[in-house]
Design a protein around this nucleic acid. Structure first.
Lengths: 212, 212
DNA sequence: AATTACATACCAACTAGTCGGTATATTTGA
DNA sequence: TCAAATATACCGACTAGTTGGTATGTAATT
């Protein structure tokens, strides 16, 4: 809360944008909403951002950075087998479905749904952020595929995007029902699918848990 | 375009709402937008709807009715085997990913994403419409499950919702990329999953295509 | 004649963005 | 070292335009 700290004020504005937009959507959130959430006046807002659209772009990039940090630090990332890391990602996301809806839903999907046609610059920022996330995920997917399903026809990227699709759709279900139960069941289906894509050889399971 | 036809005017307003909201989102579409799309003035709009929120609710119900008619008339509905009908549904939806984005995306998912917290009545209408759709779908799923995977742990409803989740997520991917390619690949993953859920006995396939 | 189905004109509230001003840092100059 | 000068960070009132909604009028239908 220290005043006259530009980086911190900007961070508060971005955090407020992240929370308010996830709760009300991009179009319905006013810059006054964000100012109130950040404890800044309009003058301060427009000192840091050229306009509402610029804030949307910056919020998408900020969200990507935050997400990257969270997933990089998650425990499942330390698992030796890439198959376990991919499944661990799904479990990690499933465990997030708790508390208030705006806290676990995705700013990128919420924004791009509304503005894909009216604000192409925001849509492009959301695409970049989502693709960054998929790229990280696809590294583990590619490693697991090489180990357990080298000849399969699908690409690691397509599975990474499919996982994002299930997540985004699960968020919509949770919003429609004001309840994450059905959304979590959808993630359970996704997990079962991924398990089936990477069949574990019954006898050599112990050996396969070794890295490499 | 015949004037003084109340039902047709209301239908034009609902059609305009369906198209404009899918293109711009609920919050960003003004009632003037809808009036312009329907060729009606504001007085006419407020004669038919008590307010913008009432229109949103009616649009959700209208969308459900329209979708029900489309899927009831689709060719795959005539297939004798329920497994083929479930897979036929996925193929039917995949084939829809063509043309302009607002023409194949889902009004319900678009709206509920924005208004789940600010307009609970609209969110409830979207939930009802989506659940109606899933209920129809789950009838075929239940029949296929009884025939091919009677002992499986998942419920027909949960798979129906999972299929909707993949579709809703695929729409978001298509919007982010302004391209349906990745979205269609996600549906291909969904199809592969459903195939694996209903394993066809290798020798008795001919017999199994008989109804009953 | 009465009701329905619209059109037109209008309003109060709200919205993104502007603008002049002020308080705090930071740099400069002696 | 310490002002003076300048740049940065932020405030809050204001504006031009937009928005959902209303009040009133009028032509067609019953």
């Amino acid at each position: 809360m220290s005043p006259r700290n530009a980086v911190e004020t900007k961070a508060r504005l971005l955090a407020a944008a992240r929370d308010v937009i996830r709760a009300k959507g991009y179009s319905a959130t006013t810059v006054d909403d964000i100012c109130a959430g950040a404890g800044v006046t309009k003058g301060g807002f427009f000192h840091h951002f050229a306009g509402k659209e610029q804030l949307g772009i910056a919020a998408a990039e900020h969200f990507d950075d935050m997400a990257a940090a969270i997933f990089a630090a998650a425990a499942y990332r330390g698992l030796p087998d890439p198959r376990d890391r991919v499944l661990g990602y799904v479990d990690f996301r499933a465990a997030m479905f708790a508390g208030e809806i705006p806290q676990y839903t995705c700013l990128l999907g919420t924004m791009v749904q509304e503005v894909y046609d009216t604000h192409p610059a925001i849509a492009a920022a959301c695409d970049r952020a989502m693709s960054n996330h998929v790229r990280e995920l696809a590294r583990d997917i590619a490693a697991a595929k090489e180990k357990y399903a080298a000849d399969a026809a699908w690409s690691p990227d397509s599975l990474g995007y499919h996982m994002q699709a299930v997540l985004q759709g699960a968020f919509i279900l949770a919003k429609a029902k004001h309840d994450p139960t059905v959304a979590k069941e959808s993630l359970a289906h996704l997990r079962r699918y991924i398990e089936s894509l990477f069949p574990v050889p019954p006898l050599s399971r112990e050996q396969n848990t070794h890295p490499g």
